[in-house]
C-alpha cells in the first residue's frame, strides 16, 4: 500500500469503528454510549458506500444513526436510572467476546476474496438478473427489481416483520385503542401515583 492508496480510507474507517466500539464498551454513561452507537452506524454506512452498496448505506444511515438512536433515548427516558451497577465479571465477558470473535473470524476464512468473480454468489443467478432484469421488469435499478420482483416473497416477509414489530409495541405499551383513552391495564400505576 502506497501513501496515496485509496485503501487507506477503508483502514481509517475500520480503525474509527474499532475505537468507537471499544469506547462504547468502556463508557459507563448510557447516554454517551447511545450517541456513540449512532456514530458507529454512520461509519458503517460510509463503509457500505465504499463497498458500492448504496441502498444498504441509505438504510444503515437512516435506521442505525437516526431512528434507533431516538428510540433508544425514548426507552432511556422510561427507565429510572440506566446505570450499570452490581458486581461485574470482566474476565468472563472478555472470554466470551474473544471466543465469539475467534469463531466469526474462523467463519470468514472460508469466504471467497472480496470482488472475486469466481465467488459462488456471482456464478448462480446474478448474471441473469444483470442481463435480463431491465427487459423483464422495465426497471433500470437491478437492486429494486431483485428486491421487489424476483425476491418479492422476501420483501413481503420483511414488511410483515416491521408490521409485527409495530403491532407488538402497540400491544405492549400502546395502552388504549383510542386516542386519549387510558386502558384499564394501566390503572394500577395511576392510583399508585395518586
Amino acid at each position: 500500500m502506497t501513501l496515496f492508496d485509496p485503501a487507506w480510507i477503508d483502514v481509517a474507517i475500520l480503525a474509527f469503528m474499532a475505537i468507537v466500539a471499544f469506547v462504547v464498551a468502556l463508557l459507563r454513561s448510557v447516554f454517551a454510549s447511545v450517541m456513540l452507537m449512532g456514530i458507529f452506524s454512520l461509519l458503517s454506512a460510509t463503509l457500505f458506500v465504499i463497498l458500492d452498496a448504496v441502498d444498504v448505506a441509505f438504510t444503515e444511515a437512516s435506521v442505525g444513526a437516526g431512528i434507533s438512536v431516538v428510540v433508544f433515548l425514548g426507552a432511556m427516558s422510561l427507565i429510572p436510572s440506566p446505570k450499570a451497577h452490581g458486581r461485574t465479571r470482566p474476565l468472563l465477558g472478555a472470554l466470551v467476546c474473544i471466543a465469539c470473535g475467534a469463531l466469526l473470524i474462523l467463519g470468514t476464512l472460508d469466504m471467497p476474496t472480496y470482488g472475486d468473480p469466481q465467488a459462488p454468489i456471482h456464478l448462480h443467478v446474478a448474471d441473469r438478473y444483470l442481463s435480463e432484469s431491465l427487459e423483464a421488469t422495465d426497471v433500470p435499478n437491478v437492486v429494486t427489481s431483485v428486491l421487489a420482483s424476483y425476491r418479492g416473497y422476501d420483501t413481503l416477509g420483511e414488511t410483515t416483520v416491521i408490521f409485527t414489530a409495530a403491532i407488538a409495541v402497540l400491544i405492549l405499551i400502546g395502552g388504549s385503542w383510542r386516542d386519549g383513552v387510558k386502558a384499564p391495564a394501566r390503572a394500577d400505576k395511576e392510583t399508585g401515583d395518586a
Binding site: G74, L78, S145, A148, L156, I162, A166, I173, G174
Partner: peptide
C-alpha cells in the same frame, strides 16, 4: 413494483412514527 413499494412505504413510515409516539 410501484404498488408493492407503496405498500412498504405506508407500513414502514407509520411503524416508525407509531413506535416513537408510543415510547
Amino acid at each position: 413494483i410501484m404498488l408493492i413499494e407503496m405498500g412498504v412505504l405506508l407500513t414502514v413510515s407509520s411503524a416508525m412514527t407509531l413506535i416513537f409516539y408510543l415510547f
